[in-house]
Simulated scan of single mutants.
Amino acid sequence: MPTTTPATAAAAAAAAALPELTLIVAATQQMGIGRNGTLPWTGLRREMAYFARVTKRLLPPPSPSPSSGGTSSGSVVQQQNAVVMGRKTWESIPQRFRPLAGRVNVVVSRSMLSSVPSSSSSSSSVVIVARSMEEALLKVQQQQQQQEGAGGRVFVIGGAQIYRAALEVKEARRVLLTRVRSGFECDTFFPLKLVEGAEDGAEEGWRRMGQEEMDAWVGEEVPRGVQVENGTEYEFEMWEKV
Rank of each mutant, 00 (worst) to 15 (best):
T4W: 15
T5F: 04
P6G: 14
A9N: 10
A15E: 12
A17P: 00
A17Y: 00
L18G: 07
T22A: 11
I24S: 04
A26G: 03
A27G: 09
A27T: 09
I33C: 14
R35C: 09
T38L: 03
L39K: 10
P40F: 02
W41H: 04
T42D: 03
G43N: 12
L44H: 07
R45M: 09
R45C: 06
R46P: 05
R46D: 15
E47I: 06
A49E: 13
A49G: 05
F51R: 05
F51Y: 09
A52E: 06
V54Y: 02
T55P: 02
K56Y: 01
P60E: 00
S67N: 02
S68D: 03
T71K: 15
S73D: 12
S75P: 05
V76W: 11
M85K: 01
R87K: 14
W90L: 12
E91V: 10
E91T: 04
I93M: 02
Q95R: 15
R96C: 12
R96E: 14
F97W: 05
F97N: 12
S111C: 07
S115D: 14
P117T: 06
S124A: 14
S125A: 13
V126G: 04
I128F: 06
V129E: 07
V129W: 03
M133S: 08
E135S: 06
K139W: 07
V140T: 00
Q141K: 12
Q141R: 13
Q144I: 06
A150W: 15
G151T: 09
G151I: 08
R153L: 14
V154A: 15
A160Q: 15
Q161I: 05
I162D: 04
A165I: 04
L167M: 11
K170I: 09
R174Q: 12
V175P: 13
L176I: 15
L176N: 05
L177G: 05
L177E: 02
R179P: 05
S182N: 07
C186V: 02
P191N: 01
K193R: 12
E196R: 00
G197F: 03
D200Q: 05
G201D: 09
G205P: 03
G205M: 06
R207W: 06
R207Q: 09
R208H: 07
R208G: 06
G210H: 11
E212F: 12
E212C: 10
E212S: 12
E213N: 07
E213R: 03
E213T: 00
G219A: 10
P223Y: 08
V228G: 04
G231A: 04
T232L: 07
E233F: 03
E233G: 08
E233H: 14
Y234W: 14
Y234N: 07
E237M: 12
M238Y: 00
M238C: 13
